[in-house]
Design a protein around this nucleic acid. Sequence first.
DNA 1: GACGATCTTAACGTTAAAGATAAAGTGCCT
DNA 2: AGGCACTTTATCTTTAACGTTAAGATCGTC
Lengths: 96, 96
Amino acid sequence: MADDAEKELLADAGYRIRETRAAQGLSLDQLARLTGISAPALSLIETGKRDPRLTTLKRIADALRVPPATLIADGSGTAEPSASSSSGGYDLREYQ
Amino acid sequence: MADDAEKELLADAGYRIRETRAAQGLSLDQLARLTGISAPALSLIETGKRDPRLTTLKRIADALRVPPATLIADGSGTAEPSASSSSGGYDLREYQ
DNA sequence: GACGATCTTAACGTTAAAGATAAAGTGCCT
DNA sequence: AGGCACTTTATCTTTAACGTTAAGATCGTC
């Protein structure tokens, strides 16, 4: 996780979490109670100093009542293009 | 993380990864080389037996050339409806 | 100035992710 | 049957997440 792009990913996700939390008027302690994640751990995540696990992200997203994906940068800047990607039906069997 | 919802989250993310990988005709070994993540670790993630870190997810998403958010269950694409907030039950104001 | 609330950081212990390697399990061939 | 490609499982080591506790740091407001 020494990569620069990864640091930016963590910083961006942390920023999104902090923004969402602040928009709801929640303190770190309050979010800690809602998520079961300690306030110091939340602080590290929000400041991009910790690499959270997927379930940790989900607990935060659930407490903030937003989809987990909204907390993650889409890889293109800061705004989400909601680019639906491919998502068409692939059929795996055709390739094997 | 013994939670049932979290297990489903991991299983779903793993399934999406496997789907995307298979759609591109990649083997675990090939994806392991692309991501720098060992094939056994990828197998555990794809089968929902491991709780990956955010940067781990991003390395996989980058190798598969999809936005990281598409690997997480939440509405953007083929996921279940998730019925808006699902558990719209609690009231945050009680904590404030 | 002292206080209260908020956030940050550090140290320490527990738990688990991630790596490497090797082994065992699949399925598909000729 | 044997071999081959792919995947899973098992073991081990290192690294890091997370909780707890406690200590600073920054705000305000009185």
